[in-house]
Structure formats: structure tokens, C-alpha cells
Design a protein around this nucleic acid. Structure first.
Length: 476
DNA sequence: ATGTCC
């Protein structure tokens, strides 16, 4: 990105002034190196978003932003329904409610080390992974609707997990306002056999070690110490969310024309929040959020079953579960006054700070855990929400390492086998059904997530708490 | 991300 076009606000914040039909500015959080590497299309796409009706404040780009379908990935935009604000399927993304959950094992690295191959094989045999992977669960139409309304709460009632898990899940495990009847039968059919499956791409299940502590006080409050072993699950709403995205992108193209919304890019298809299509999308998207929460809950249950057989002393209590692809109605300060706005976070993690009333008591003083998944074989990070993020970014932070290289280029550069061998030489065990998938996800194909979280911390979006490094990686 | 193109 050409930094000469930007106004520098601070060492970690940049601004594009509103010109040529932009209703509000664009604010990008990054250091000079990250913003120089950032694709020009991030600025272009974020500027396009600011031209949509009812946008509030600014369109924000996180330090890991890269170009996406319509909206940049790593983009945040909030809209006011009372000012003709819109909701956009491209502003949420195809993998609705993709997110990360981390579990404590209560074990140290030394206890895992002799059993890591056994654990890797058992997890790989138990958790279905890969494109089109199917689980053992088959949902009837009635059960599907109950799952889409109940989320992780439904999953726990079915025996997949513990009631105490729910408090440590965004929305306490159940997104209100879901409308299963707004989800196409095609989307439901695609999901029928996909509950409890990991999917592909950058999704993973990892056994990780806490390798660095940056904020001892918050780490202690989160129950994390150097050498602790945790399990992290990164996945989303599988075929259902993808189909909802596809269905509504098409319907929103019609709606935008019908309501006379001038689209700077046809990929920014959207509908007024208060229109029938807008309301149906919100209902369907919330159903997909519940699908993702239930999915991560079932994978948690499968993970616990594996540990119960191999390392029964492992606790596998939940630290937290948070999404990075959603549109949520939230109260935010707008020009000094509290207001309900529709916050799109696409590749941006919700990051509520200390005292936020939606957080469980256990995180009221620290702010919520902000879970940032790294690329395969590299580190992931645990941050904490800050009080500042409210005014900086509608309480949002980054979500992970963006790609530095296309999938095609990665496959030409590495073979899956050599990537697995190189990671094995570093003590990291990878299990995947796809050599090609592993090559596409090679660590070298991604930007360094460390630079991203440092920038997020310095910009004030979230506070860096701990680094975790993989021991075992189950990869789609 | 995705029954990696209806």
C-alpha cells in the first residue's frame, strides 16, 4: 500500500480521509512494515464499504487485513438501522462464525511428549477432517432446526459437553434471534452429516504448549502458565454457513437494486437491515452462528473422548470460544452517546474489554480472551480485550496471519510431504488427509502472525497475554 | 472458506 495516500495518526494507526462519496473515513491499524506490505485493494475495498448507507464512525482494517470478497478480510464496519443502514453477506464472509476455542488440559509439556504420536493418531481417527468430511451424527429436519436455534446449548443437552462450558462461549453458547426457516433446505441438507467435523483450509485442531507469557497478571487470571498444554480448535459453520452466504449474496444483489442502493462494487451486495431480506439474512446468519458453536462443542466432546482414553488426567475445561466472522447487534458509543449498531466483523475477533456487561464474571476484570490462530506450525496467541478497543474499533481485534502467497504458488513452492517432514524435525506432528492441503498451508505461505499481534497490542486493540506453539496439528 | 464450478 502506498503510505503517501494515508494520514498517519500514530505509530500504529493510519487514516484515509472521506472523499468521492465516502461517508466516513477508513482507519487502518498496522505498523509501517505491515501497511507497506498490505495489498492496495484493502484500502480500495474499505473505502468502498464507507460508501454504503448508514455506516457509522469509520471502516476499520485490522493489522492482518487482506483483500476479500467485497469487504476486506480483517475489516470492521458498523451500521445504524435507523439511518437506512445495511447488512451485507460479504461483510460477514462465507464461513459464518468461523472461530477459535481453547481448552486447558491441566498438563505440562513433559506429560504429553511421550504420547504425542498416539494422541495425534487418535485425534485424527476420531475428528473428521478435510473437504467434504462427514461425521457420525445425522440430524433429522427437527433436530436440525433445534441445533440452529440452540447452538452449543443444544449440543450440551445432547450430551456433547458440560453445562459449565456454556458460560465460556460467546453469547453463552446460544445466539438469540436465529431463524431456521430462513435457512434454505439446500444449506440444511449440506450440513446434515457435517456436525462435529473440522473442514479444511486454515482450520485445525492443535495440541499446543504455552511458550511465552507477556502479561503475567492476566495470564494468571486466565489460568495460563509457561509450559502448560492447551488444545485449540479453529473451525466454523461448514457447508451450512457457506450455502447461506451463497444464497443471500444472490438475493442481496436483487435487494440492493430494489432499494436503490448504489453499489461501488457488486460484491458489496447488501440489503437494508429493516428490509425482509435483511431480516431473513440476520436470522439465517444467527442460525449459522449456532451451527458453528454446536460444531466446535461436538469437536470438543470428541477431543475429550480421545484424551479420556489416553491421558485421563487431562481436564479439558474450556478457556473461551470466540468467533471472527459475524454481524452482531451491539451497543457502542457513537459521538459520545450509546447506540445500537450492527457490527460486521469479517476476519476480526470480537474483543470486549474489562467491565463489559456481556462478559461472564470470570472475565469482567481482565477483558475477554481474544484467541488468535496462527498458521500451521507457527505460534498462536492469546490476548485480552481492552477498554480502548471500544472507541478504536467497535471492540474488535485481528484474527490471525493473513496469506502472503496464493494457494497455487504455495503448491508450486513446497510438497506436502516435505512440509510435514520439516515440522516433524521440529517436534511437531501433523496429520492431514491432503498433501496438497498441507502444501497450501505451509508456514512460509503466511505472514508472520507475531508482527500482527504486536501491532494489535501496540495499537490498543487487545493486550498481548501469551504465546502458544503447536505440538500436534490435525489439519484439514 | 467451500460437495475447491450448476
Amino acid at each position: 500500500m502506498d503510505i503517501n495516500r494515508l494520514t498517519r495518526l500514530s505509530e500504529f494507526a493510519w487514516r484515509i480521509e472521506p472523499v468521492n462519496g465516502m461517508r466516513v473515513p477508513v482507519i487502518i491499524y498496522a505498523d509501517e512494515a505491515l501497511i507497506s506490505e498490505m495489498d492496495e485493494k484493502v484500502a480500495e475495498q474499505a473505502a468502498n464499504v464507507t460508501k454504503l448507507p448508514g455506516i457509522i464512525g469509520a471502516c476499520y482494517a485490522m493489522p492482518d487485513a487482506h483483500w476479500g470478497y467485497g469487504f476486506p478480510i480483517g475489516g470492521v464496519a458498523a451500521f445504524d438501522a435507523l439511518q437506512g443502514g445495511v447488512v451485507s453477506a460479504g461483510g460477514v464472509g462465507f464461513d459464518i462464525s468461523c472461530g477459535v476455542r481453547t481448552l486447558y488440559t491441566g498438563l505440562k509439556r513433559e506429560q504429553i511428549e511421550p504420547l504425542k504420536t498416539v494422541l495425534a493418531d487418535a485425534l485424527y481417527a476420531t475428528v473428521p477432517v478435510g473437504v467434504g468430511s462427514r461425521g457420525k451424527i445425522r440430524l433429522s429436519p427437527t433436530e436440525m432446526d433445534e441445533m440452529l436455534t440452540g447452538g452449543a446449548e443444544w449440543a450440551v443437552k445432547q450430551g456433547y459437553g458440560r453445562p459449565e462450558d456454556l458460560e465460556r462461549i460467546e453469547e453463552r453458547g446460544r445466539m438469540a434471534g436465529a431463524r431456521p426457516e430462513a435457512v434454505s433446505s439446500h444449506a440444511k441438507e449440506r450440513q446434515r452429516a457435517e456436525m462435529g467435523t473440522l473442514g479444511s483450509g486454515n482450520h485445525y485442531l492443535e495440541i499446543q504448549e504455552v511458550s511465552e507469557i507477556y502479561d503475567p497478571a492476566i495470564a494468571a487470571a486466565f489460568g495460563l502458565a509457561q509450559g502448560d498444554v492447551v488444545v485449540t480448535i479453529h473451525c466454523g459453520s461448514r457447508g451450512l454457513g457457506h450455502q447461506i452466504g451463497t444464497d443471500f449474496l444472490k438475493r442481496m444483489q436483487g435487494a440492493a437494486a430494489q432499494y436503490g442502493i448504489a453499489l461501488p462494487d457488486r460484491e458489496l451486495a447488501c440489503a437494508p437491515i429493516e428490509s425482509p431480506v435483511g431480516q431473513e439474512y440476520l436470522g439465517a446468519m444467527r442460525a449459522a452462528i449456532n451451527c458453528a458453536l454446536a460444531n466446535r462443542q461436538i469437536i470438543t466432546h470428541l477431543t475429550r473422548k480421545v484424551f479420556a482414553e489416553i491421558l485421563p488426567e487431562a481436564r479439558l475445561d474450556l478457556l473461551y470460544d470466540v468467533s471472527h466472522n459475524t454481524c452482531k447487534v451491539e451497543e457502542h458509543l457513537v459521538q459520545g452517546r450509546k447506540k445500537l449498531v450492527y457490527v460486521h466483523r469479517k476476519g476480526a475477533t470480537r474483543a470486549f474489554g474489562p467491565g463489559h456487561p456481556d462478559l461472564p464474571m470470570v472475565f469482567r476484570e481482565t477483558g475477554q480472551p481474544v484467541l488468535i490462530g496462527g498458521s500451521m506450525g507457527t505460534a498462536s496467541y492469546i490476548l485480552a480485550g481492552t477498554a480502548d478497543s471500544e472507541t478504536l474499533s467497535f471492540a474488535s481485534a485481528c484474527h490471525g496471519a493473513g496469506r502472503a502467497m496464493s494457494r497455487h504458488q504455495a503448491v508450486r513452492t513446497w510438497s506436502g510431504r516435505e512440509v510435514v517432514d520439516q515440522l516433524a524435525a521440529r517436534g511437531i506432528i501433523v496429520r492431514s488427509p491432503s498433501w496438497r492441503g498441507v502444501a497450501e498451508e505451509a508456514p512460509g505461505a503466511y505472514k508472520d502472525v507475531h508482527d500482527v499481534v504486536i501491532a494489535a497490542d501496540r495499537a490498543g486493540l487487545a493486550r498481548l497475554v501469551a504465546q502458544v506453539k503447536p505440538i500436534v496439528c490435525i489439519k484439514g
